[in-house]
Simulated scan of single mutants.
Amino acid sequence: MAKSDAHYFYVLQCKDGSYYGGYTTDVARREAEHNAGIRCKYTRNRRPVHVIHSECFATRSEATKAEAAFKKLPRAKKDSYLQENKE
């Protein structure tokens, strides 16, 4: 899959231990933007953040569906999901 065709669902762990799930086409760039305080109010006061999980999808729709499903999970199920899907 060419880099421009890649769509990612990613999870950050914030300084306060909380998780942030998002969508991007470039995980490294997006992590840098979060740490610079760009385009995300949630992580702005929770820096530094670190990518702890990412999944690649063929379409934006698939990636954003994965993001939405993750965000609906309670914390314990998010922890289980991340443990089960370690890279």
Rank of each mutant, 00 (worst) to 15 (best):
R29Y: 07
T59V: 04
Y10Q: 01
E62F: 12
K78E: 04
E33G: 00
E55L: 07
A2W: 04
C40Y: 01
C14P: 06
G21E: 08
Y20P: 09
G17M: 02
K78G: 03
N35R: 09
Q83K: 14
F70Y: 13
D79P: 09
T59W: 14
K65E: 10
G22W: 00
L73H: 01
C40P: 04
C40H: 12
S80N: 10
E87L: 04
A68S: 13
T24L: 04
R60M: 12
A6H: 07
P48K: 07
Y81C: 03
D16Y: 09
R30F: 03
K72A: 07
G37H: 09
Y81P: 05
K72N: 12
A28Y: 02
L82N: 03
D5I: 00
K78A: 08
S4A: 15
Y23C: 11
P48M: 07
D26W: 00
Y42P: 07
K86W: 11
K3V: 12
D16R: 11
V11A: 13
I38T: 10
G22P: 09
V51Q: 15
S54P: 01
A76Y: 05
R30N: 03
R75H: 09
Y10P: 15
L12Q: 13
K78V: 10
A68F: 06
S61F: 08
T43N: 13
S80A: 12
A63G: 05
D5F: 04
K86N: 12
C56D: 03
D5A: 13
E31W: 08
E55W: 00
F70S: 03
G21P: 13
Y42F: 15
G37R: 02
I38N: 06
C40E: 00
I38H: 05
I38R: 05
P74W: 03
A28I: 05
K71F: 04
K65Q: 13
V27R: 02
A63S: 14
G17Y: 05
H34C: 12
Y19T: 01
K78P: 03
K71H: 11
A28G: 03
R47G: 15
S54G: 04
S80I: 12
K41S: 10
A32N: 14
L12V: 04
C14W: 08
A2T: 14
E33I: 00
P74C: 07
N85G: 01
K72D: 01
S80V: 10
S54W: 03
T25E: 09
A32T: 14
Y23N: 05
E87Y: 06
E31C: 14
N35H: 11
R75N: 02
R39K: 11
R30C: 01
A32Q: 06
Y20E: 06
N35A: 13
G22M: 06
Y8L: 07
R29T: 05
F9H: 02
N45M: 09
G22I: 00
H53T: 06
C14E: 08
A28D: 06
T64E: 07
T64D: 02
R39N: 08
L12C: 13
N45H: 14
C56M: 08
A66L: 11
A69F: 04
R60G: 14
E67D: 09
E31Y: 05
A2C: 11
K86Y: 15
H53K: 02
D26P: 04
H7W: 01
E55G: 00
Y42V: 12
A68I: 01
G37Y: 10
N35S: 09
